[in-house]
Design a protein around this nucleic acid. Structure first.
Lengths: 152, 152
DNA sequence: GAAATTATGTCAATGTTGTTGACATATTTC
DNA sequence: GAAATATGTCAACAACATTGACATAATTTC
């Protein structure tokens, strides 16, 4: 009989520790604004997908509108995010970053981007596509391929 | 001038979605016992490092003893984890899994292990070491290399 | 054009998991 | 015996998630 491989404890734990530090560094910057991880996610996906609707953001984040409302209120009242009624459908509240919002979002993505760039450089720069594929395969298959919905 | 690469949005987001689903599947099993992610982490690291002390577990998890106490109480009263006084130092409460605890821990690690095995198989089985290295490099450097403290 | 549906917002209650601060107990070390 | 250590516990609080109910404005449908 071929040996039965047990669970890959090493990768399971590396994923835990890696993710913790990956979000831990941004956490410290967010704290200075009184924000948390939930604010980070909103800033990130609005930055990546400017003008998206509230419904689209809820789909990406997979949280309830009540959860989103709380952090969105902080971000709007702090003038990091702006809401504008949709031109076609004026019920929609499309989300845009202000200058402050863009600055913060870019500082956060800069931290995470540099951490990833460093890690890839040390691991093997040629392996980036394989790493991307690995992470993509970790995601539940029935999910829509891209986090970027068509919302023009 | 060489082009300045921006942050790697793709990997940043893949890490977010991958981690969410990676812990989301275990979440659904834990729920049946009335447990959450915090319980999962404790079960996992006790399984991996049986007989470890409370202090060692706190160092791995980087949480306060009050946070640990809550979930540990659930796990002990539900007979998933057993505490035994250390033989050398009887102030210590060393942690062990019961049979139920081991069953649950193994079911959880099985889910995560299979997900990782599938993802590696689809990405490139030969790339496992590079992926491990990448994740390891994502971790803050000043951290002790291995999650397994010497506690014999 | 009235009725139904949709997009969004909001109020209230609740649960999990984290925090800080203070204090108690048992055991070991000096 | 006094001090330090390992652990536990009480209380208050914060962040972020949930469910359920209801409100408003705009769009779509009949």
């Amino acid at each position: 009989m071929p040996p039965v491989e047990g669970p890959d404890f090493e990768l399971i734990e590396l994923l835990f520790f890696a993710y913790r530090d990956f979000v831990g560094e941004p956490d410290r910057l967010l704290e200075k604004h009184g924000f948390g991880r939930a604010h980070h996610r909103v800033l990130h996906f609005v930055n990546r997908n400017e003008g998206l609707t509230v419904a689209e953001l809820l789909e990406i984040l997979e949280i309830t509108k009540q959860s989103l409302a709380r952090v969105l209120k902080d971000l709007v009242s702090g003038e990091f995010i702006e809401q504008r009624a949709g031109t076609e459908d004026r019920r929609q509240r499309r989300l845009y970053l202000t200058e402050r919002g863009r600055d913060l979002a870019e500082a956060l993505v800069g931290m995470q981007g540099r951490r990833i760039a460093r890690a890839i450089a040390k691991a093997d720069p040629a392996a980036r596509p394989v790493i991307a594929r690995f992470l993509a395969e970790l995601i539940d298959p029935q999910r829509p391929a891209s986090p970027v919905p068509e919302s023009a």
